[in-house]
Design a protein around this nucleic acid. Structure first.
Length: 462
RNA sequence: GGCUGGGUGGCAGAGUGGCUAUGCAGCGGCCUGCAAAGCCGUGGACGUCGGUUCGAUUCCGGCCCCAGCCUCCA
């Protein structure tokens, strides 16, 4: 059985869906006013693996990942650019989809946008007002009254009083309590707005997720995920809004992935120490980035460094070297490795452990290849490709992966490489080892490594 | 100050009350013209102080240190 660490209870729990056989999952996606950075990539990859794995385990998964396409930052950025907000968001939504596709992230089943969910948002705000969980301030904004929701603080495990002690929120005379938060924000002149019973305005950040998730998945669903920085206040507020509005339990399992860090510090837009996905993909293949993310457990911090990216590349080289020259995958994989892999993944999606199982399979595959046991090798290839598939890796052509984008990076074309190899073959036939080694060194200087095998000489990057 | 997670061998990173994690790097061997790749073998670890236990890196407690949240942030 799959076990998942539930942030709400602070422990691993066996996954028991609301509806047997189904898994309904909502993940907080991006606010689209800029390019995705590696932190966003981590969320996308991590929950992509959760969805893939649950499907592989036989669940009928509905995966919803929203897009926040209206908020203060978007408005500000659009104003700075002197362009309509919608034009700005369209551009970054396209960019996000490109990044996701490059990283092998499968599209979610539903990708709702805040601006397309206004009816549900307004309805939910109205319900909260009608039920006495919200009030309208003198400035026209509608606020959630935190004191009315008794379980407030359950997710962050802090009482209201404790939170007020450390509160850094600005004093706002429109609010009854500093911890109250905006549900509906009245529009200032020139700002994008939507009609509502409280005048033209836009939704607060938290309400849109409550509205979109319950609209797409029902009042009560299985998994809600996002970065750990969303735990408070965003997710805490979602619970307060949703449960107060629907009267139902909102979410069973809360999943939060850890940060990407740089030099032991959180990568974030506010700190400015971030790398965008497209920057990184300019230097490393998407599969390397994906492997780098999965080589750490999703709840741990992930330290971004060139060294760690290089290590991810080296690990994939080993996989693809084993896969190269291997027989075609058999119909069935190896039972033992499959079980070990499943046990690792069942334990709160322990991808590092799962990868170690795959490495053990690699050793077996290399042995089988050496001993000429084609049947065994074919079974192991099947295991690697199927199990790798649930992680979204090892689906490529080995030769292509190992040669990489050597031509563009090393400044030497594939034709030239082949030419030099032919020259070196000639030298080797003449036992001119000096010339042979000279050519090999020359290629190595271009980042090309040669391997002399029984079937001739082959090359790879690295 | 409150709350969350952590501190594992040269690096990355899992895990376990007594038995090899895994990958990269190192060392020895096989293979090779020499290499590379691969295989075989091998060294090296669990922040600190106490406690529980026949035995703790693993459980409990104190302490130290790190990261994060408490304000927009994946």
């Amino acid at each position: 059985m799959v076990q998942i660490y539930n942030s709400l209870t602070g422990q691993k729990e066996y996954f028991t869906p609301v509806e047997p056989g189904k898994a309904r999952m909502y993940v907080c996606g991006m606010t689209v006013y800029d390019y995705c950075h590696v932190g966003h990539a981590r969320v996308m990859v991590v929950f992509d693996v959760v969805a893939r794995y649950l499907r592989w385990r036989g669940y009928d998964v509905t995966y919803v990942r929203n897009i926040t396409d209206i908020d203060d930052k978007i408005i500000k950025r659009a104003a700075d650019n002197a362009e309509p907000a919608s034009q700005l968001t369209e551009r970054y939504i396209d960019a996000m989809h490109e990044d996701a596709t490059a990283l092998g992230v499968l599209p979610p089943d539903v990708e709702p946008r805040a601006t397309e969910s206004m009816a549900e948002i307004v309805t939910m705000v109205r319900t909260l007002l009608d039920n006495g969980y919200a009030y309208q301030g003198a400035n026209g904004d509608v606020y959630y009254d935190v004191s009315r929701f008794a379980p407030y603080g359950a997710l962050s495990r802090e009482s209201l009083d404790d939170q007020r002690v450390g509160a850094r929120v600005e004093v706002d005379e429109n609010k009854h309590d500093p911890l109250d938060f905006v549900l509906w924000k009245a529009a200032k002149p020139g700002e994008p707005s939507w009609e509502s019973p409280w005048g033209p305005g836009r939704p607060g950040w938290h309400i849109e997720c409550s509205a979109m998730s319950t609209r797409c998945l029902g009042n009560h669903f299985d998994i809600h995920g996002g970065g750990i920085d969303l735990k408070f206040p965003h997710h805490e507020n979602e619970i307060a809004q949703s449960e107060a509005a629907t009267g139902h339990k909102f979410v069973n399992v809360w999943m939060h992935n850890g940060f990407v860090q740089i030099d032991e510090e959180k990568m974030s837009k506010s700190l400015g120490n971030f790398f965008t996905v497209r920057e990184v993909l300019g230097q490393y293949s998407p599969e390397v980035v994906r492997y780098f993310i999965l080589a750490s457990h999703y709840r741990s911090p992930l330290n971004y460094s060139t060294e760690n990216l290089e290590q991810a590349g080296a690990a994939l080289d080993r996989f693809y070297t084993a896969l190269r020259d291997a027989p075609a995958a058999a119909a069935d994989g190896d039972e033992t490795f499959c079980q070990r892999f499943q046990a690792a993944m069942d334990d709160d999606f322990n991808t590092p452990e799962a990868l170690s199982v795959l490495f053990d399979a690699v050793r077996e595959l290399n042995r089988a290849k050496t001993s000429g046991d084609a049947q065994r090798a074919a079974g192991l290839v099947a295991s690697l490709r199927t199990l790798g598939g649930t992680l979204g890796i090892l689906q490529g052509d080995p030769e292509q992966f190992l040669k990489g984008t050597a031509q563009t990076q090393s400044g030497i074309s594939e034709v030239d490489i082949e030419g030099l190899i032919a020259e070196r073959d000639e030298a080797r036939r003449n036992k001119d080892w000096a010339e042979s080694d000279r050519i090999r060194d020359e290629l190595q200087a271009h980042g090309i490594t040669l391997e002399d095998g029984t079937g001739g000489t082959r090359w790879r990057k690295g």
